[in-house]
Write a protein that binds this DNA or RNA. Structure first.
Length: 948
DNA sequence: ACAAGCCACATTTTT
DNA sequence: TGTGGCTTGT
């Protein structure tokens, strides 16, 4: 990327190195550019990297920032390796490792954070542990029986804990940390306002009509069973057009002591449970870092940074805002973001952090300074710098995108804001070549592909090139953005049928899908290993409440239908048949299910595994976070399909926003969590356990029903999502829906066209994509032809004790992260050897580089793709390194082919340097140079991927 | 025009 | 669980 000259606003930001600044950085306004320049400027003003904290949203962004800073200043990559440029999570992680041993003591918890405390990233594994925890918890606490009875899903309680942690509500051993309890109680006055708003009469054609609240309470008792103290519908809706104001208080005031006690005890004991098992989750990382910085004044003051910058501030949570304040030693605080792009509410990001920055800043300073002055700097003066000049899109696209923020997302929703209230962006380019179009079709996926075929090679959709000229578009220029992953996967399947080249972004974590989780549960039942865990999952899935599950497990009185299903499974001959049977029962018939069937069948054929072996295979895959790509990711000219979330920060010449349909965008149906924490009503339970009619029964909580009717649903984030999708487009922007378009689609100022796709199946003469296939000689395992032959599966499987797939993956993962400059500790001798090896390299390190090599095979052009573990680039040489955890050298000939491919790719990338491929054997620390094979020989070792 | 009641429909995003 | 589309009643 060429580095342009900053515009006036950008320069203001770059040079404003003192005081509090909020940068309202619209989409495509050169935010990253300005931040890195500002960082470089700080260094040139004499700040050391250690003085400047730069917080990013992802680890990738942190790496990119570092690279771009290196390009702008005198520091080298290795000098910035340990500079505090990171995410909140990794910063907290490092902080706790160094100073956090006793952080839990501030909550009254004796357990420590030690060197062996690990971050547990895998949610499935954590959910599994939490389930175990909760089961023990309820046995130990019969006093919580009444609330526990209400639960139907353990992960919803875990999710509640995460939410509380993100909002700064922490437990102590005997109460709540600081003013946590007030948040749980809620804010009645704030609720009253919401109540009044929902209860205001509506304007009809002739006079007032009933309020939204009264309307939504119609059918109050239908399909519900309330406790006897609930008012009848007639009584509740007696008033007209509004219901009586007394109901605000009647509904809000409720005895919640038992609920609060339950949540408290679960929360604090789960923290202890985790610490004793030497793990923390993402939430606890931030929780303990916050507590530590809050309580240890000397530490906070010694750490405090002279400069703090936070990027993507619209996606920060309450706790992260407060962490930033605790880490800032001066008022040199700069937050950068765009409220219009806040799309991570489900991670408890609070748009208000940036929308009401000044108010929150003052409130949080006051809260943090309660009995001790933690935030010493003044917060009265805040300078806002708006970045409005957009270097990405045409004015047509920018003008339309503002409408996304004001479209009603349901038929009845009315929005007060108008387009004129939205600050617009100014396009830098004066071009007006944009096509903006919308289409609907009964077969939407085919219509999209059809449209793509029209676009490619068509100068009506010409695209800006770097030099300001227009050029003909290719597949590469097109991105299809979707709200749900599912549609993307389906689109890919259809694209494969019609031969349209698609790169679906991000492999699927196959073993973290519902399918795999249920499968693992049934296998545990069948093998009678951990069958209790298996049954728990199966029963929860079937809709039993946790209390019922506990009872069934204790009495081993499983439902008859399940037992006979189990017996049927036990009689099956092969694992493949068992898997198919299970999926059939649950109606799983999608890509994940069929990939699992294929993969597991293959694994069991290859090694004649028993059920126990299969269970361990799945467990290890989970542990290694194996991403088995369901679909191949071709490297050549292909369209991009990704979720809108994944597209954040990216840009594409042509964007098709797809699947803007009812039920999908916005997605319908919310959680059925029984315990919730919502602002401003606080902690509530939707159901109540009572014996009011003689027998224990779960009653609906009428108060919650009234409260939630006042809260309504907020579709702002869905609109922002649409806005983000639209502002990814540089040149052309299209919208697509099926037969039942979402109001988001219908209400945009567009004239949709109804389309009948005329796609022909075309499998001809297009560049084929293939994964590099290397067959590995296997000494004792019969070779199965695995289509999913990630080599690791075959080479390392069960070869040696403790050196399986998981081991290989871990070593690679460690190597990747270590080389990328992350603070990871080696966990095995192999990893120590990798570390020593990397420490000995003095050039630039490039990690996990994608390699694409076009090869002619007969008449066909084939692209081989692979990932290079490490490139070590010095002034005159480039070294290719591939890590292998093999104990033998059996496979070296095959590896030679693989390295040869990389060799030719890298030669092309660095024509003027010497290129040397090498294998690093981690078991001995041996570096083995490889003599690459000539290009001509390589075509013989690729095979088409058509059978995929 | 308005209110009320009934039915069918589909379950997301990921540091 | 809420939404939209329908019918029925005032």
């Amino acid at each position: 990327m060429t580095e342009p000259t900053p515009n006036a606003r950008q320069r203001e930001l770059i040079e404003a190195t003192e005081g509090i600044h909020v940068v309202d950085a619209g989409a495509g306004t050169g935010k990253t550019f300005a931040i890195t320049r500002r960082y470089a400027n700080l260094l040139s003003e004499g700040y050391e990297p250690d003085d400047v904290l730069l917080v990013t949203f992802t680890n990738n962004a942190a790496t990119e920032m570092k690279e771009r800073v290196v390009a702008r200043c005198d520091y080298s990559m290795s000098a910035l390796r340990d500079a505090p440029i990171s995410t909140f999570h990794s910063f907290c992680h490092d902080l706790l490792l160094e100073y956090g041993a006793d952080a839990p003591s501030y909550l009254g918890i004796d357990d420590q954070i030690t060197g062996s405390t690990k971050l547990l990233e895998n949610e499935v594994i954590e959910a599994d542990r939490f389930r175990t925890f909760l089961s023990q918890f309820v046995d130990a606490h019969p006093e919580h029986e009444a609330v526990f009875r209400v639960l139907n899903d353990p992960t919803s309680v875990l999710e509640l804990i995460r939410e509380l942690a993100a909002k700064g509500v922490f437990p102590t051993v005997d109460g709540w940390y600081r003013d946590g309890e007030a948040a749980l109680d809620g804010d009645f006055e704030a609720f009253e306002e919401l109540f009044a708003e929902a209860n205001a009469p509506n304007e009809g054609a002739n006079g007032a009509t009933q309020s939204d609240l009264r309307d939504s309470l119609s059918g109050f008792e239908r399909d519900r069973c309330f406790l006897p103290d609930a008012p009848g519908e007639g009584e509740l809706r007696d008033g007209y057009p509004s219901i009586d104001a007394k109901w605000a208080e009647e509904a809000f005031v409720e005895d919640r002591e038992a609920l609060k006690d339950f949540v408290h005890d679960v929360y604090v004991e789960y923290i202890q449970f985790a610490l004793r098992r030497n793990y923390l989750n993402f939430s606890f990382l931030q929780l303990f870092a916050f507590v530590l910085l809050c309580e240890d004044h000397a530490l906070r003051e010694s750490i405090a940074f002279e400069q703090v910058m936070v990027d993507e501030f619209q996606d920060t949570s309450e706790i992260q805002f407060k962490l930033a304040l605790l880490l800032a030693g001066t008022d040199n605080l700069c937050v950068v973001g765009d409220w219009k792009q806040s799309i991570y509410g489900f991670q408890y990001a609070a748009v208000e952090n940036i929308r009401s920055f000044e108010r929150r800043l003052r409130t949080y300073k006051r809260e943090l300074n309660g009995e001790y002055e933690r935030v010493g700097f003044p917060v009265e003066e805040v300078t806002t710098i708006p970045l409005r000049r957009n270097y990405r899109s045409t004015q047509l696209i920018l003008d339309l995108s503002r409408h996304a923020l004001t479209v009603p997302a349901t038929g009845s929703e009315s929005i007060e804001r108008t387009v004129d209230d939205i600050d617009g962006l100014e396009a830098d380019s004066a071009r007006g070549h944009s096509t903006i179009a919308a289409f609907t079709s009964a077969s939407e996926r085919e219509a999209i592909l059809d449209r793509i075929e029209t676009i490619v090679g068509n100068d009506d959709y010409a695209v800006d090139d770097e030099n300001g000229d227009l050029r003909t578009p290719s597949y590469d220029d097109i991105a299809v953005l979707t709200r749900t992953r599912r549609f993307g996967r389906e689109l890919q399947t259809t694209a494969d049928e019609f031969g349209v080249p698609v790169a679906y972004e991000g492999g699927v974590k196959l073993f973290e899908t519902d399918q795999a989780i249920l499968l693992l549960a049934w296998l545990r039942i069948l093998a009678d290993e951990d069958s209790r865990r298996g049954w728990a999952v199966v029963l929860e899935r079937a809709g039993y409440t946790l209390a019922e599950v506990e009872q069934i497990l204790d009495e081993r009185a499983y439902p008859d239908a399940m037992v006979s299903f189990q017996e049927g499974l036990a009689a099956m001959e092969s694992i493949g048949a068992i898997v198919r049977q299970i999926f059939e029962r649950y109606g799983f018939a999608d890509a994940s299910a069929s990939s699992l069937v294929a993969l597991l069948q293959d694994v069991s054929d290859g090694t004649t595994r028993n059920l126990g072996g299969m269970i361990r295979f799945i467990e290890r895959s989970l542990d290694a976070e194996a991403t088995h790509e369901i679909d191949d990711n071709p490297g050549g000219d292909s369209i991009t399909v990704q979720t809108i979330h994944a597209a954040k920060g990216l840009e594409h010449p042509i964007v098709i926003v797809a699947n803007i349909n009812r039920y999908s965008f916005p997605p319908s149906g919310g959680g059925d969590d029984r315990i919730r924490f919502e602002d401003p009503i606080g902690l509530r339970q939707t159901k109540l356990s009572s014996t009011a009619h003689g027998r224990p029964h779960l009653y609906d909580n009428w108060r919650y029903r009234v409260l939630s009717a006042c809260l309504g649903r907020d579709y702002d984030e869905e609109r922002r999502l649409l806005y983000v999708a639209m502002t990814r487009a540089q040149d052309h922007l299209l919208f697509s829906a099926g037969v039942e378009p979402s109001p988001l689609f219908e209400n945009l100022p567009l004239e949709p066209e109804s389309v009948e796709p005329e796609l022909k199946e075309s499998g001809i003469d297009r560049t084929e994509q293939t994964r590099l296939q290397v067959s590995i000689p296997e000494p004792d395992v019969p070779a199965g032809q695995s289509p999913h032959a990630l080599m690791d599966d075959r080479v390392f499987e069960d070869r040696e004790e403790g050196r399986g797939i998981e081991f290989g993956n871990r070593v690679h993962e460690f190597a990747e992260r270590y080389a990328a400059g992350e603070a990871v500790e080696p966990a095995s001798d192999d990893e120590r050897r990798v570390r020593d090896f990397i420490d000995g390299l003095d050039g630039t390190l490039l990690v996990e580089e994608d390699a694409y090599l076009p090869v002619a095979v007969g008449e066909q052009q084939v692209t081989i793709s692979g990932v290079i573990d490490l490139l070590h680039v010095t002034e005159d040489r480039v070294e290719i390194v591939d890590y292998k955890t093999d104990l033998t050298r059996d496979a070296v000939d095959e590896y030679r082919k693989q390295l040869s491919v990389y060799y030719h790719v890298v030669r092309h990338m660095y024509p003027d340097r010497e290129v040397s491929p090498a294998i690093f054997y981690t078991a001995e620390g041996d570096r083995l140079e490889i003599d690459p094979r000539p290009m001509g020989e390589l075509s013989g070792l690729v095979s088409s991927n058509e059978e995929y």
